[in-house]
Design a protein around this nucleic acid. Structure first.
Lengths: 271, 271
DNA sequence: ATCTCTTGTTTATCCTATACACAGTATACC
DNA sequence: GGTATACTGTGTATAGGATAAACAAGAGAT
């Protein structure tokens, strides 16, 4: 399938169909009836369903039904469900990146970067259920990478180092997003506020986690810290913020090291 | 496996079936023919299939077939596929925790902790595909938490702070594991070493990531750093190690702060 | 010996994704 | 204009998934 419309960009054929679509590289047909549907509509409907009922509820027939069409009509726009998932991810990642402020502190920018990433998970709880397909290659996700690089524009680091830091930050954000959404689901699914799952686990764990085999964990289970029983007493506040500050400190320390003394034998994973 | 008839532990009923099974809390029947199968066998077979063909290949009929039984026979041992997944996770997490060495450096221990976690992902590439169900509650996964707490046994931190650090470390390990397994799959699926996906993406991205909309990303795509084209030139070495060292530095810094000056208003996320 | 519970199996129901052929429609070319 | 062509949405069909229900055989309990 060579796309003459694509200005002779044969390189693009190596991309999965969904990725091509995300860049708006569909071929627009000349003959035949105009499509009553559109990729955007389909993705929008799919996202709406996932937002409400989770990723598992997104089936081709469900999406088609929501739009008032038959299942197979979707395949005129997408070549597989995998395409749809790719497009859903990119759509969910379409958050406005704040404009560049020259005087901004990089720590502030990175905090916002992570927070914004986590917000995607909060608004689209299914986001973490998407299978990761590798390095980001769709436009909106790449805009996030772009943003991350921007926060480090003044860093005296190599591109490789910057990419590693982006990996670090987004990994952390992803995990936090998944866990937050997960705990939220636990609470929601509890149904009965009386004997809801999260806390009643505590009682069960107290029976199972014995002091012999779990000497260090045992006290935490007993005190209820492990299951977050008395979360309001938690002085750490938000777990996410805590870990993020540690990471930022680590980056800061790396910058200091790089600038002050030239790389001593301080690093062992390096090179 | 201590199987007393639920010594009046009604608390355990709040646990999902799979979790109960992971603690060896099945009830053993007296009447009827003795089972030719066992939960352990089933889980073992399922893990073997997932190791070879991925989590998607694990279907009840596939597992049953591998054991020479019919699909429905499994339901005499597990009440749902979800149970099977819980047990698979716990089985994959059954790695030997190194014995406690009193003189060990906590940084070394944490490095090993993360490395070992990532090793689980490497040996069981499907591990990251498992839906996270919340706070760990199965014995082998809890042993990991136990280990993490052990590495911090000398830390002058609260239990909450320690839990946050464990979250930080395992989040990071999880993300690295997922990404590593992901890139590996890309390479494997490439088939043709010539025009395999990872690198041919580069060509496509060079056309799509323009300098206007992606000013900071553009040079990385062009130089091939983004897609890891010349990975051997990467001075950072292993991305994983890099980020981990940053995190450890961050923890170190937190400890220093806590010990030197008493908690100033250094933390802003706190409650 | 019979009752009762447990086993593995058979059968059936209800979902998936998606391949394929069809009928209708709008444009390109003659 | 006509007509071929490419494109639309649809209906039908296949192959696979999880799991509920009914059932025959086996084995301890009475």
């Amino acid at each position: 399938m060579n796309n003459r419309e694509n200005d002779g960009l044969e390189e693009l054929d190596s991309l999965p169909n969904g990725v091509k679509l995300s860049w708006g590289l569909g071929k627009q047909p000349k003959r035949g009836p105009k499509g009553e549907l559109s990729v955007e509509q389909i993705v929008e409907a799919a996202v709406a369903i996932a937002d409400r009922e989770g990723l598992a509820a997104v089936s081709m027939s469900r999406v088609a039904g929501a739009l008032g069409f038959t299942t197979m009509s979707l395949y005129r726009y997408l070549s597989s469900k995998e395409d749809l998932l790719v497009l859903m991810q990119d759509a969910a990642s379409a958050v406005p990146i704040p404009p560049q402020r020259e005087e901004a502190d990089w720590r502030d920018e990175m905090r916002e970067y992570v927070r914004e990433t986590i917000r995607v998970f909060r608004e689209h709880p299914w986001y973490g259920d998407l299978p990761i397909t590798g390095v980001p290659v769709t436009p909106n996700v790449l805009r996030f990478v772009e943003w991350g690089l921007r926060t480090m524009r003044e860093f005296p680091l190599s591109d490789y180092e910057k990419m590693s830091i982006i990996l670090l930050l987004s990994s952390y954000a992803r995990s936090c997003g998944i866990i937050e959404q997960d705990l939220g689901r636990l609470v929601r699914e509890g149904g009965d506020p009386d004997s809801f799952s999260g806390l009643s686990y505590t009682a069960a764990l107290r029976r199972l986690v014995d002091a012999d085999r779990y000497p260090y964990l045992h006290p935490l289970v007993m005190s209820g810290v492990y299951t977050g029983e008395k979360e309001d007493e938690n002085p750490v506040g938000d777990d996410m913020e805590f870990g993020l500050e540690r990471i930022l400190d680590g980056i800061q320390h790396y910058l200091d090291t790089k600038q002050g003394k030239e790389p001593a034998a301080e690093e062992e994973g390096g090179n």
